[in-house]
Design a protein around this nucleic acid. Structure first.
Length: 473
RNA sequence: GGCGCGGUAGCCAAGUGGUAAGGCGGCAGUCUGCAAAACUGCUACACAUCGGUUCAAUUCCGAUCCGCGCCUCCA
């Protein structure tokens, strides 16, 4: 089977056939750095990270580019609010991006271009558009004339006349058409600016992605991605300005991830229902979040729920617990994994069906658990080795289950102890107390201690010779 | 208003022209002082509604209802 992906141009799954199998290009619209990352950013990042991992798993030689928008109205507004230089804001939130996103185990893009490092590239592109008659200068601004580009609306399926009729855009005196968009914005007093043939100013939002994607991936490349909300106008405008300038097709496939909703409503600044990653991480491990995000297909809406995230944490815990019980020296015969991976590839080839892939992992999990608990028969070591290897091999393109189980346990335990305000020493003390009660057969007292700890979020497990504890997820 | 997406068991969530993965939950068993964990088995009247096409539809087509998104910054 070949990989099929939903292409926004057609709305249908299409076979992924790169221009050149030796050099597949993917450009993903990153973030504007003016605030902390939220769970929606995480979803987009994980979706495209999975695409990257899977493409490489399938043998494609991929160049992955993801930008930072580091000059923008929102950044300037925030700087003005705080009374600091705008570069402080952009620098701070690039750092915040890595702080929030690195824990998710994201593959680092090959290139992470920043808009402000590419002003000359953008100016060149704008000049080309002006020369070709697709853009016009007005009052120090430069606008793209959408009526010069007949294919405008092709990605988003919008009809230009209807857009104009229903445009909520304030008609600007400088724009010939209300839908024309800024390639270059004249500097207002006090704003940062760069020199240009049209006077000092700064780039419009869309031009950076055209300039940077084509610079690193070529004028035509394979894949371009981002959140659904970028379809219009951002990606529509990128296509228009890029194809107008080069006369060649821009990205061949557009891939868009669905939103994270809160109680069925879109999470957004204006709704005030943003869930920041740093807040999630106070309660859950990044890997559980990743598993949670992958349990829904990337293009579908995902209704955020604490409870489902907790289930993902429990699931992660169980998988690591099982993996940690397998002897580390066991390994399967060389080609034994092929059949497993074929099944995995088949479901992932179908538009990255991660829920189905997770079901396959669940199947291997059950087999492994069952074999490890084999009673009345010799432990099937080959099957055990194979099942574990399969879980790890299928987990790799998903970015799951690759950590050292002990590291995961340490992290999740520390997280919860911090939350509930208990220390390991305090728990051990209570256990010692209870062990005494138990040897005295004072079951009431022993059970009370156990119930107390349970109420605080610590579960006790009595083994033959000793009592262990774990955080109650 | 224009364009688009979705409605699958208690919850989450795949999928298919021939009565439907997986997870969570629930129930029972083994184990245990009792539990928990783990394993084993079981569980569910699930495919929004109404028509149509078809030998056969949850899967295709149409309509209806409901929910959501984009059209303005937004992952």
């Amino acid at each position: 089977m070949t990989l099929r992906l939903t292409n926004t141009f057609s709305g249908a799954k299409e076979a992924f056939a790169p221009l050149d199998t030796n050099r597949v290009g993917l450009y993903v619209c990153g973030v504007t750095v003016y605030d902390d990352c939220h769970i929606g950013h995480a979803r987009a990042a994980v979706a495209f990270d999975t695409l990257v991992r899977y493409l490489r798993h399938r043998g494609f030689h991929l160049t992955y580019v993801r930008n930072f928008t580091d000059i923008d109205d929102k950044i300037l507004n925030r700087a003005a609010q705080e009374g600091v230089d705008w570069t402080q804001i952009s620098r701070r939130y690039v750092e915040a991006y890595y702080r929030d996103m690195n824990p998710l185990g994201l593959v680092r893009p090959d290139v992470e271009p920043r808009a402000t490092d590419h002003i000359p590239d953008m100016l060149q592109l704008i000049e080309r558009l002006v020369e070709k008659g697709y853009a016009y200068a007005a009052g120090g601004n430069v606008f793209f004339a959408i009526e010069k580009f007949p294919a405008y609306g092709r990605l988003s399926g919008k009809n230009i006349d209807e857009l104009i009729a229903g445009a909520r855009v304030e008609p600007s005196e400088e724009k010939r058409n209300p839908l024309d968009f800024a390639l270059w914005k004249a500097a207002k007093p006090g704003e940062p600016s760069w020199p240009s043939p049209w006077g000092p100013g700064r780039p419009g939002w869309h031009i950076e992605c055209s300039a940077m994607s084509m610079k690193y991936l070529g004028e035509s490349f394979d894949l371009h991605g981002g959140g659904r909300d970028l379809i219009f106008p951002h990606h529509e405008n990128e296509i228009a300005q890029s194809e107008a300038a080069t006369g060649r097709p821009f990205a061949r496939m557009f891939i868009h991830n669905g939103f994270v909703n809160i109680r069925s409503e879109k999470m957004s600044k204006s709704e005030g229902n943003i869930i920041a990653l740093k807040d999630i991480y106070r309660h859950f491990t990044p890997e559980a979040l990743r598993l949670y995000l992958l349990s829904t297909h990337y293009a579908s809406p995902l209704d955020y729920s604490d409870d489902n995230l907790r289930q993902a944490e429990q699931r992660t815990f169980r998988v690591y617990k099982l993996l940690s019980t397998v002897r580390p020296d066991l390994s399967p015969p060389p080609d034994a994994l092929d059949a497993e991976l074929t099944r995995f590839n088949d479901v992932m080839d179908d538009d990255l069906n991660t829920p189905a892939a997770l079901a396959l992992i669940a199947g291997r999990f059950d087999a492994l658990a069952s074999d490890l608990h084999a009673t009345g028969r010799p432990r099937p070591l080959d099957a055990i080795a194979l099942a574990r290897a399969a879980i790890l091999a299928m987990g790799a393109p998903l970015g799951l289950f690759q950590a050292d189980p002990q590291d995961y346990f340490a992290r999740v335990t520390q997280l919860h102890l911090t939350q509930i305000g208990l220390t390991a020493a305090a728990i051990e003390e209570r256990i010692a107390e209870r062990t005494q009660a138990r040897s005295a057969k004072d079951w009431a007292r022993a059970d009370r201690i156990r119930a107390d700890l349970k109420a605080q979020g610590v579960a006790l497990e009595d083994a033959k010779d000793r009592t262990t504890w774990r955080v109650d997820l």
